[in-house]
Amino acid sequence: MEEIIFCITVGILLGWFDVLSYKVKLWLNRASLACLYLMLICLGAKIGCDSNLLAQIETLGKQAFILGGCTIIGTMVMFYIIIKLFAKNFDEEGGEEQ
């Protein structure tokens, strides 16, 4: 976890002081997308190589669906309260720009 915090801190500093050229940033974004796919393939491979886990995939999918849905509903309830408290006129004040 320390590595992640170190990497995001170094990244923010590099972005803040704008030390990288546009071309380098473009290249980094492409490499980052490639890393995302590499990560997903490795994540899939970790699931695929574990026969016990594969046997449970249907149950895990149901649990993930319920959990994802509950987090969305919970957040929407909280946003409803925040809008009532702090942003009743948000749409009229600044949200009209599209």
Partner: peptide, 15 residues
Amino acid sequence: ALNFMILVAGIEIGG
């Protein structure tokens, strides 16, 4: 791969 992605995300946030 994750550390690299975090570094790039940090660059975008800072910029």
